[in-house]
Every structure is written in structure tokens, then in C-alpha cells.
Design a protein around this nucleic acid. Structure first.
Length: 313
RNA sequence: CGCGGGGUGGAGCAGCCUGGUAGCUCGUUGGGCUCAUAACCCAAAGGUCAGAGGUUCAAAUCCUCUCCCCGCAA
């Protein structure tokens, strides 16, 4: 069978690799254009482009999807099926209708929950204890297509978005190949999503990392976990921005206003929250790298009683 | 040429503006105190101040270049 793959970031890599290892033929790859990245403004190719180049598969990096030119290029590959993992663009009807077997999408959540661009992150932020992969037949909506296969994995208390994503990506590759296998065998019955149960997981914004100290210690920890490794959860100590990468809840009641540094020792910083006390374990300040709180305190004088929160201007 | 910060004993930082004997909080090692300790007290070891060149009687400090790291922005 002739398959075209569409995907862009690291998350899509295991999907493409699984397809390459399968019995079907990958006749073309579509990924997003190289984008300026990093400190200079060097153009960085998306990970999927590198795989395509290495494998000698023809690839396209269209600036715009909805052009006659792109549609023609796609049609020239004569795909029976298009597989999509984290491509980052909405496909419209002319593309969806192109392959006879339709377009299969790999999504990193247990649909219909967490439709959108950042399903893993929001699942962790909301304190979910499990998530998974859903494959579906794409339609024109945002992750609204009929579901094909679904498999669950646990989210552990120590997990961050950064540790869950690779596991899901691997699972996504396996499930994608299995989905295609069953589709070819005609053994697949798509199930419509129950839209009344749907929730949205929009792309993370910088501001989503702001820590609300009036929340519970556990909810703050979940946010820190979900925002790691990008874009990071942060608060302000006076003018200085503190990125907090790791924290634990301390089993004692908060005796001070939320955000107050209740205990500062040589080894630890404890902060009052709206419900419980939070101990910061790993911190990063501007121009510095992330480090254990003990090291941070060795070189910085921090007084207890200070209130963390919005930058005082 | 996107903006900015930084590289100082093993770790994190100060000192640089206003050149002139290398400092702080830890860690390490030895000793002491203690029922005991990650606590406390005393002592010691450990640094070509990222690298190269320049200015100077004298450079961690001023000037130039190189390498590496980080934040913002994308």
C-alpha cells in the first residue's frame, strides 16, 4: 500500500520510523518548513525532515496547505492512505478525500478528552493518572474524527510532560501500524466520539506557566510537571523571575498567606499555598541554569517572609 | 548580523564601574562538642580568576579577539 506521512516534531518520529519498518511503502513525507530556532536565528529543520532525508524519501515543506499546487504534488504520489502525527496544520476536505482509505491521525490523549495541540501537557496539569493514544479517521474538525484504536498508559506521580511524551510517541508508532494493518484487513469499525465528553487542550502559552499560589500545593506541582520541560512554570521573587522545575508537597498546613516563603534553610525553600506547603527542589533564575535548591541557596541570600508572586514594578 | 546575562579552588556566588596581598555560603579532609545528628565549634587542603593578545611600574579588574554556557524573543 502507498502511504504518505505528515508530521513535524520529535513526537512524530516514532510514527514515521514504525511505518518505515512496516510492510507498506512510504511514498512521500510532508512536514513544516524550517523555522528559525535557538539563540542566533539559525533555521532548524523539523525532526521529520531529517528522517526523510536520511531514508531517501521525497518530502515537501509547504508554506501553505490550501493551494492547488500542493494538492497536485500530493496527488502525484497516489497515496492509498495518509498517516498524520503531530503535523501542526488542519487538513481540509480536498486533502482528506484524496486517499481512498482516508487519513489516519495519531493523537496523544484518550479522546474525546484533550482535543488539540497539547494533550499530554494538559493531562499532567490536570493531575490525570492515565492517558493514552487514540487513532482516528480524520475529518475537518480539530481531533473530532471517528476513533479506531485506543490504548492507555499510566501517568506516574513523578512524571512530567517531558517524560510522558516519549512513551506516548512510541506507543503512537505501534498503534499507527496496527491501525493500518487492521484497516487493510477490513477489520476496523470506526466509533464516533461522544462530543459531550470532549475537552480541549490548546497549545501552551507562556502565561500558562504562571504559578497561582492560592491553588493547592498539589495543583501547583501538577502545573510544574505539565509545563516541564517547556515552557516552564514560574513565579517572581521581587523583580527576579524564578522558574521552578521540581517541587514536592509537604504534609503540613499553610500558616501564612499564599506565596509566602515560610521556611528557608541551607537546603530548602518552603512556600505557603492556598492549601498546604510546597517545598521547592529545583530552581532556575535568569541567566543561570537549573539547579537543586541547596546549590542555589549557597550563592544567594534569600529571606523567609518574602511573598512570591507578581513582579513588583 | 534579533536582544541581553555569564565563565573566579569540587558546587553556587561576591569582587570588576573607582587597577595594587583572592573573598562569601557550602562541600571535602582532620579534630572537638554531643546519647546522637544532615546540627554546632575549631583547623586544614584546594584557584595559571575560560583562552590569546594589548595598555600599565602593576590586570580577576581597562581595551581587542576567540571558545564555551545561559535567559529573553522566535
Amino acid at each position: 500500500m502507498r502511504i504518505v506521512f505528515m508530521g513535524t516534531p520529535e513526537f512524530a518520529v516514532p510514527s514515521l520510523e514504525a511505518l518505515l519498518a512496516s510492510e507498506d511503502q512510504i511514498v512521500g513525507v510532508v512536514t513544516q518548513p524550517d523555522r528559525p530556532k535557538g539563540r542566533g536565528h539559525e533555521l532548524a529543520p523539523p525532526p521529520i525532515k531529517l528522517i526523510a532525508q536520511r531514508s531517501g524519501i521525497p518530502f515537501l515543506q509547504p508554506l501553505k496547505i490550501r493551494t492547488a499546487e500542493f494538492l497536485e504534488s500530493l496527488a502525484a504520489w497516489k497515496p492509498d492512505l495518509i498517516a498524520v502525527t503531530a503535523f501542526g496544520r488542519i487538513l481540509h476536505a480536498p486533502i482528506l478525500n484524496l486517499p481512498s482509505m482516508g487519513c489516519v491521525n495519531v493523537h496523544g490523549s484518550l479522546l474525546p478528552k484533550y482535543r488539540g495541540a497539547a494533550p499530554v501537557q494538559w493531562a499532567v496539569i490536570n493531575g490525570e493518572t492515565e492517558t493514552g493514544i487514540t487513532t482516528m479517521l480524520m475529518d475537518e474538525g480539530m481531533d473530532t474524527g471517528a476513533m479506531l484504536l485506543q490504548e492507555r498508559i499510566p501517568i506516574l506521580p513523578e512524571d512530567t510532560a517531558g517524560t510522558v511524551v516519549p512513551r506516548l510517541a512510541e506507543l503512537g508508532g505501534r498503534l499507527l501500524v496496527e491501525t493500518i494493518r487492521q484497516l487493510k484487513a477490513g477489520a476496523m469499525t470506526p466509533r464516533a466520539q461522544d462530543s459531550t465528553q470532549a475537552t480541549m487542550a490548546p497549545l501552551l502559552k507562556k502565561e500558562d506557566g504562571v504559578i497561582d499560589w492560592t491553588g493547592s500545593a498539589q495543583s501547583i506541582i501538577n502545573r510544574i510537571r505539565g509545563m516541564s520541560p517547556w515552557p516552564g512554570a514560574y513565579t517572581f521573587h521581587g523583580q527576579e523571575r524564578w522558574n521552578i522545575w521540581k517541587a514536592v508537597a509537604v504534609p503540613e498546613p499553610a500558616q501564612a498567606q499564599p506565596g509566602t516563603l515560610v521556611t528557608v534553610t541551607k537546603q530548602s525553600i518552603r512556600v505557603a499555598t492556598g492549601n498546604g506547603v510546597l517545598e521547592i527542589l529545583e530552581i532556575q533564575t535568569a541567566n543561570s541554569k537549573r539547579m537543586p535548591v541547596g546549590q542555589f541557596l549557597a550563592g544567594h541570600r534569600i529571606d523567609s517572609g518574602v511573598r512570591l508572586g507578581t513582579a513588583t514594578v
